[in-house]
Every structure is written in structure tokens, then in C-alpha cells.
Nucleic acid binder design. Structure first.
Lengths: 329, 329
DNA sequence: CTGAAAGCGCTTACAG
DNA sequence: CTGAAAGCGCTTACAG
């Protein structure tokens, strides 16, 4: 900028004005400056600008794993909002490692991002408290923060699972197996809660032998399915607590005689192309990302109200796998 | 840092030494400094550091659209490499808009990223030349740069397509339809070239009525399929030039009597669960991301050799859809 | 082992 | 309309 000023024969502040589109520069002066900028291939150094203004024009997003469909849909939506606000998005994958979440989040803070969106892996987010006190805006997505007052945007996990199980109940099923991830995950616990509510709501008691948590642990899924389907009183329908479980279960029940009905939590691509189509409770990862990013920007714009907790609805998409009654067994 | 120095009763440089783990500080001094850091909740401001050192410890990745599976696999792999190098990854989606690619790339340059990985959308990358002259490392992925000397990491598009078409030829097909994206895309043109090579290699002449490019334009796919399959001399097999085409074609031929054989370029999740399983030429998006990132870091580490052009192999995965002969029609 | 001074490239707050 | 001075928070190059 100094070089540009010299070459154009103006003060450094005038160059700054031109670069930032500030008013109060004669057209001729501006032309001279622009020429000098061209000639020298000048580009503003945003680090210096950040250092002075305290704002980076960047926000960070921490997800579980960028490469999975849920995260990438969420990321895409957040990126769209960020770009609309002229803001850059920095991303990081925590890989469900609490330590890594913390490390990444603090690295982003050291870079002085204006705000951060976190799909939390950690069980304690108090480490962000000093950052927030220093002005960081933070929004949690998919799972609420622990030991920290902050905004969160969640899917209606319990309501969605309840709806899915009610759908199976309405089809005449009385023995519905539930396959879930570890209960230490907020989402898994909530979905299990929805299952309980639906079963109880139908006047039935939950048979603990129909609930298989931690089903994604190595080797567990075959065991779980054997227990659910091969006993003396087998389940006639299954509700799977997430995407990966749905797919893994499908791999194992496809072509099986007396195949149980199936409803899965979370939609996935090609669910409609399988035979039969897979009935799911669709959540809205793009909606989560979009809402979280908008909320973050409203905080950055000065909204200082009490932390919000926004819950996005889910919806049932019947496609065939969840509509077969128990009779055919 | 000044505050910490004051509180600890040391010089500012000593604090810097402690923060950066530089040697030459007494244990006692270090303890005093660390305590002060704790008390004040101090965290180094990386903008200031960047301003002084000229290195950000961040690289940028521009993809077509973070939310699609190809891009997210690529991003995930690049992120893994970056994190292993203690480097942050900034991402942006160009959405196939040349203007946006340029804008984003230059915004990242203004932030002084150490390097940039680009899945190019633009038809002219000379805008990066001044940046590269100023020390920016750049690697292009999936498509080569235009009007710029730089590293590129590509999939073997022509070879893969040739292999896929040869597979259909080996199954006895003589009329193989090709559905491709716009020929203005490097990848689409290369895959078409592979198709030509395979057909010519079998001693046949390419029937132009069997080639449908621009098939992803609105409304074009139904027209293309009608022309390929409903004429007097229909294709008995199809080769689809990308993922989205494969899925769209599947939606339309599933359940169709005399369904043509199908091989698609690029693998996709659940391709094995469909009936029949979908035979594909798998490319390796994670491998592309990984290789590109490693190449970028080798440049950052000082490798100044001539630009590389790395081509990653593809592989055929037979699953059923491509193995039916022409006889059943 | 430790620290004072200069400077990275901008913007802020002024003065003219 | 324009510009000189100060300062953002670090690191570099020295000196002690």
C-alpha cells in the first residue's frame, strides 16, 4: 500500500480509501491509484486489516466429518449464508474426538474468527466461555452445548422417532425393534426417548429385549439383528436410529424371507430407488446449517438476547419399507 | 501479550518465547508466564503473527460444491492432510461459476493463505499468475489449469471410460449409448474420448446418434433416452459419463422391459444395494484430495521442480448392471 | 537467559 | 478532498 501510494504520488490513506471504496476521492486521484494498483499487482493484506479492526470476516464451522452427507449438506448451507454475508468459512472435522474439537476451536479463535458454529463432539464446552466473553459468537448445531450458555439449533429427534414408530404401530406392528447408536450421543438418546414415547403412547410396555443400543460398535449389528429377529418372539418391524444403521440393516435384511418392516431416521440418497423404497424420518441438515449460520450472523449484527434453542421439525416420507404390515410373517 | 508480560513481570519477548515453545527460558520464568497466561485467558493473535511472518498456516480449497459427495470426499482427505501438517483448511464452493471462483480465490489470497487447491470452474486461470509469482503455491484438481503453469492432479477419465465401454463390448454389446455432460467440461470431453477409443478399438465406427452430450441440461435426459432406446436400432447398453447421469438414468430405466445394460462413471453409495447392483468405473475423490494436498505441502516445503501432472487410475467394479448381454432384448 | 526497539501493512482519529 | 501520526499484537534482529 505504501508502494502504491508512492507510485501514485498520493498519501497512504488515500490508497486505503480507494481500496475500500470509501467516498471522498477525486475521480482523477482514484484513477491514478487504480493504475498503480494494477501495475504493482497490489492486493490488500487482510491480516493487517484484521489486526487493526478486530474483525476477520471469517467464521468457522466444526463438524463431525466433512465427508459425510449430513455434514456436507450442513456445510454447504452454512457456506451459502456466509458467502451472502461476504464472509469466508473455515471448516474443520472433529472426527468425534473431544480433544480435537477443542484444539480446532481454539485454533480458529487464535485466528480471531468472528464466530463459530459447532456440531459438538465434546462433553464440556466451558473452554469456549472465555472466548465468548471476549466477543466470540457461537452457535451449536445438532447437539446442545454442555456447561455453556449458547445458542443451539437442533432437529426434533424425539418427535421424529416417535412419529416413525407411530407409523409402524399404525401399520399393526406390536413388536418393533429399535437399533440405536451409543446413548452417550444426545441425538441417539433423544431418538430412543421418542421410541419409548410412541410405544407407551400406544398403551404397550417397552420390551427391553427389543432395544439394541451401541449397534454401530464393531460386530454388534449382526448380533443385534439376530437377537431381534431370530428369537421366539421376533420383531416384525425395525426402527433404525440413524443413516448408517439403516444402510447396514438393509444390507442384512434385503432378500431375507419374512423381511421386517423398516423405518429409518434420516433420509439418504437413493432411498427411493431401492426395492422397496425406504421409509424414513427426514431431518433437514441444510436447514440446520442455514438456520445456525443466520443465527450466528444475527448475533454478529448485535442481537444480544438470551440464548435461543431452535428445534427444526422432521418429516415422515413413506416409500414402502415401512408400510408392510406384520401379517406377512 | 503486553498484559501478560506486565502481569508476569517479564519482557514481552519472553512471553513470545513461552507461547511459541522457544528454548531459553528458566523454568521459574516460564511458570510465572504460564500462570499469567491462564489468569488473563490470553491466546496468541495469529493475525499479528501472520502479518509479521508472512505465513498463515492455512491453505484454501475451492471445490464445485461442498455438499456433493465427490467434493466432500475430496475435502475430507485434504483436510486430513492439512491437519497432519498443523495447517487450517479454508473452503469455498465455486458452484461452477467462473466469476465466483476468481473472487473466492482472490479473497483467500488477500488472507494470504500459504497455498490453494482448486477444482477449477473457470476457463482462464491467469489471474493467479501474479499471486504465484508472489509465492502462492497452487495445485489444480480434477481439471487442469488453463493458461497457467501449475501442478494438477487428475483422474484417468479417458482410460476409465474406455475400460467401462470395453467391458460392455466384451459382454457382446455393439450399440452402446453414451450420455455425457457438457463437452466444455474437461472431464466430460475426456470421458467421451475414452468412449471413442474403446469403440474404435473394437473395430467399430462411432454412430453419432448413440452419443448424447449435454444430457444434464433441463429436460434433456428424457429426450436423450428416448432417442437412444426407442428408435429402430436401439442401444443395448448405456455408459453414463457421471454420477448424476447414472442416477437419473437409473430412475428412468428401472423396471423397464428390455432394460439396457449400464456402466456408470464414478461410484456412489448404495450402488451395491440396488437391484441389480450398478457396475461403475470408480474414481478416487479422496485420493485426488490427498494427493493434491500432499503435493501442495511439498511445494510449501520448497520443492521448486517443474509443474507435475499426476493422473490417478480408476477401477472397474462389476456389480450386475453392466454384465447383462444384449441377447435378452 | 532476557528484553528494548523496530517494523509487518493496514485503519482510526485527527488535522488541514 | 487529502495526508501524517499513532497503534493493532506480534516477531525479527540485536544487544546485554
Amino acid at each position: 500500500m505504501k508502494d502504491v501510494a508512492e507510485q501514485a504520488g498520493v498519501g497512504i490513506k488515500t490508497v486505503s480509501r480507494v481500496v475500500n471504496g470509501e467516498p471522498g476521492v477525486t475521480p482523477e486521484t482514484m484513477a491514478r491509484v487504480l493504475t498503480a494498483i494494477q501495475d504493482l499487482g497490489f492486493r490488500r493484506n487482510d491480516s493487517a486489516r484484521t489486526l487493526r479492526t478486530g474483525r476477520t470476516g471469517a467464521i468457522a464451522l466444526l463438524v463431525e466429518q466433512v465427508a459425510d452427507p449430513f455434514s456436507s449438506a450442513l456445510t454447504g448451507a452454512a457456506e451459502e449464508v456466509a458467502s451472502r454475508h461476504g464472509t469466508l468459512l473455515l471448516t474443520g472435522s472433529c472426527r468425534d474426538d473431544p480433544h480435537r474439537e477443542r484444539e480446532l476451536a481454539l485454533a480458529f479463535c487464535a485466528r480471531r474468527v468472528d464466530g463459530i458454529i459447532v456440531v459438538p463432539a465434546a462433553a464440556d464446552h466451558s473452554y469456549l466461555a472465555p472466548e465468548m466473553a471476549a466477543g466470540l459468537a457461537a452457535v451449536f448445531v445438532d447437539r446442545p452445548p454442555v456447561d455453556l450458555e449458547a445458542d443451539s439449533v437442533l432437529a426434533d429427534n424425539a418427535g421424529g422417532a416417535r412419529r416413525g414408530v407411530e407409523h409402524l404401530l399404525a401399520g399393526g406392528h406390536r413388536r418393533i425393534g429399535f437399533l440405536g447408536d451409543s446413548e452417550t450421543f444426545y441425538t441417539a438418546a433423544e431418538r430412543l426417548r421418542g421410541y419409548h414415547e410412541a410405544v407407551a403412547g400406544a398403551g404397550l410396555t417397552v420390551d427391553p429385549r427389543l432395544v439394541e443400543m451401541d449397534a454401530l460398535k464393531p460386530g454388534r449389528i449382526d448380533l443385534a439383528l439376530a437377537r431381534l429377529l431370530d428369537g421366539p418372539a421376533p420383531a416384525t418391524a425395525l426402527f433404525t436410529g440413524n443413516n448408517r444403521l439403516t444402510v447396514e440393516v438393509l444390507r442384512r435384511i434385503t432378500g431375507r424371507p419374512g423381511r421386517p418392516a423398516l423405518v429409518g431416521f434420516d433420509d439418504f440418497e437413493l432411498a427411493d430407488l431401492l426395492t422397496p423404497g425406504v421409509t424414513v424420518i427426514a431431518q433437514d441438515p441444510a436447514g440446520l446449517g442455514h438456520t445456525a449460520a443466520e443465527l450466528l450472523f444475527s448475533r454478529l449484527a448485535g442481537d444480544a438476547s438470551a440464548p435461543h434453542r431452535i428445534v427444526l421439525p422432521t418429516r415422515l416420507i413413506p416409500r414402502g419399507s415401512g408400510e408392510a404390515g406384520p401379517a406377512h410373517r
